[in-house]
Design a protein around this nucleic acid. Structure first.
Lengths: 205, 205
DNA sequence: CGATTTTTGAAGTAAATATTCCAAAAATAC
DNA sequence: GTATTTTTGGAATATTTACTTCAAAAATCG
């Protein structure tokens, strides 16, 4: 049972000649590699293999395309954290697996290095302020997930009751974001794994 | 004993009407805040309060100005690490002081948040490739300084002989770079201090 | 003083940028 | 088949970008 193109019922006009999801995937790759402001429309159009009219009618404008690309990233290559945090039996085990998985994911040869969300828009011109707001929100959500798992661990007695869940979550966010910068700077997977291992030594007793 | 303007001997032509160092300082501030590619000539000219001809005759072009601004940063606001690494009696004490100082420096209200070098050019368009090379070199130098202090510590018997100095240095680089991202994302000084404290728990025994 | 040298200011330029326009194309609805 | 709707391709546009030009200004040199 394979689907031809888009299996959705046709609306009236001329059908779209490209695969929207594939185009978004390609846009994501370029934004991931070059950042929001560092990516030109020309690069996007070439990578997506569509022309301006198609891009604007399908995705709105550069800003909205970027936001869709970020969400596409978080549901795809950036989604590896969720099942680890949810399914690992122990909290410490979850974080251990998390940082090791990050070391691997952030240095995959078939992808741009580092985390698209961590690296995006650390410099913000006034023009990109609204994009940055959206990113900040998503980073906050990511932090909240780490924190929730730690709080769960405290409740289960896996961690000292006095543990500051938010600050421990922030420590791991710092590690993950730093690993992204390292990956961008050419650090090897083994280096990141060593950092992951070091980070776990900071786990509260 | 205060100097009027530039005390250097006058060369022949019309004297420069602005203070080169002050202009560079202002350029640094803008680049630090907005990044290399995020800063326009117009913003630079306004901040430096000079006109295009003056900028180009005094600093070459945008790229060379940025490199001078980076060096200006490393000799100024970014120089706080050097004396700590050189003067602290123990290696562990040096790193403890280092991460605490970073937490403070990266969240100073009178400066752009984060480290100018860590945050610069994590996305690189082909146009900025040569600038990025210069940055990579400087980051490597920074890493080497951390590594050197750790190796010194190993030699002095402060650290286990089997300690991998390069990887431990990278761990702390990761922490410092992650703290810069956190600072950019609005994390408070106290948060960074908590992260600094957590990082020290990873110190080898 | 007059010649020389360097900086200044303001306007100018060439390229890149994000976005829009519009006629032609390709589908469905009647 | 004709009308309607939507997408396409390519050209056009307005703005911003980094950078240059050049005459006038302001200094030193002889």
């Amino acid at each position: 049972m394979k689907m031809e193109r888009k299996p959705v019922r046709r609306s009236r006009g001329r059908p779209r000649s490209f695969d929207r999801d594939q185009a978004l995937d390609r846009a994501m790759a370029v934004f991931w590699e070059r950042g929001y402001e560092g990516t030109s429309l020309e690069e996007l159009l070439e990578a997506m293999r569509i022309n301006p009219s198609s891009l604007y009618s399908a995705f709105g404008d550069k800003e909205r395309l970027f936001q869709m690309a970020i969400d596409h990233y978080l549901e795809g290559p950036g989604s590896y954290m969720v099942p680890i945090l949810e399914n690992e039996p122990t909290t410490k085990g979850a974080f251990e697996k998390l940082v090791r998985a990050a070391a691997k994911e952030l240095t995959r040869p078939d992808q741009p290095s580092g985390c698209m969300l961590s690296l995006a828009l650390n410099h913000c011109s006034p023009a990109a302020a609204s994009v940055q707001a959206a990113l900040t929100e998503r980073r906050a959500k990511s932090l909240a997930r780490l924190q929730a798992r730690i709080e769960h661990g405290i409740a289960e007695g896996e961690l000292p009751p006095k543990t500051d869940a938010r600050e421990l979550a922030r420590f791991f966010m710092t590690i993950l974001q730093g690993m992204s910068v390292q990956a961008r700077d050419g650090a090897s997977r083994d280096s990141l794994l060593a950092t992951a291992q070091a980070a776990m030594r900071a786990w509260p007793v």
